[in-house]
């Protein structure tokens, strides 16, 4: 490698130490690698889907420090020292479990491409909603509007989120 190559932006690999689904991850990544591509291509967490890759569709939504973000609109180097949770990391999360069961009951998915992003967005919505104020349909629709589904037309998704929010007791044991 020549000196010029070593300093070329293409060659620049940035050391990264972060946490993904509770596990520490240390590696060197190209600066331009998005978080979505880190998760899918380097860490093989392919539950995070890539639709539009410019922040419109919401399929790539993950949690960073407990907040939903578009992983296509974040460079991997920006999650240095942060905690990333993907849909795989929500496998045993009770809220996500309730949403998944409700989705099955209400036919909230068809091809399933948008589902991981929907689950992450809905999990944050329910977990962070003040308990004294029940979630209403308008709020669910507004929050879920950041996730595009091209199959089901949203009715089932909205019903599922409302049901999962309303009745924590239904739980993951209710198998429709």
């Amino acid at each position: 490698m020549t000196v010029e190559d070593a300093f070329s932006p293409l060659a620049q690999r940035v050391p990264l130490a972060t946490t993904v689904n509770g596990r520490p991850v240390t590696l060197a990544v190209p600066a331009r690698l998005t978080l979505a591509d880190l998760l899918r291509d380097e860490l093989h967490l392919t539950g995070t889907h890539l639709g539009c890759e410019h922040g419109v569709c919401g399929a790539c939504t993950v949690l960073v420090d407990g907040r939903s973000v578009r992983s296509c609109l974040l460079f991997a180097v920006q999650v240095e020292g942060r905690s990333v949770v993907t849909v795989e990391g929500l496998q045993d999360h009770p809220t996500t479990g309730r949403i998944k069961c409700a989705m099955a009951r209400h036919h909230g998915l068809q091809c399933g491409f948008c589902t991981p992003g929907m689950l992450v967005t809905a999990t944050e919505l329910i977990d962070r909603h003040p308990p004294e104020k029940p979630l209403d349909e308008a709020c669910v629709r507004e929050t879920m509007s950041g996730n595009i589904c091209r199959c089901t037309g949203y009715q089932g998704i909205v019903r599922a989120v409302l049901e999962a929010a309303a009745d924590p007791a239904t739980g993951t044991t209710h198998e429709g």
Partner: peptide, 10 residues
């Protein structure tokens, strides 16, 4: 849909 390369400074 991938950004062009750039130099990164933190």
């Amino acid at each position: 849909m991938k950004p062009a390369p750039f130099a990164y400074l933190r």
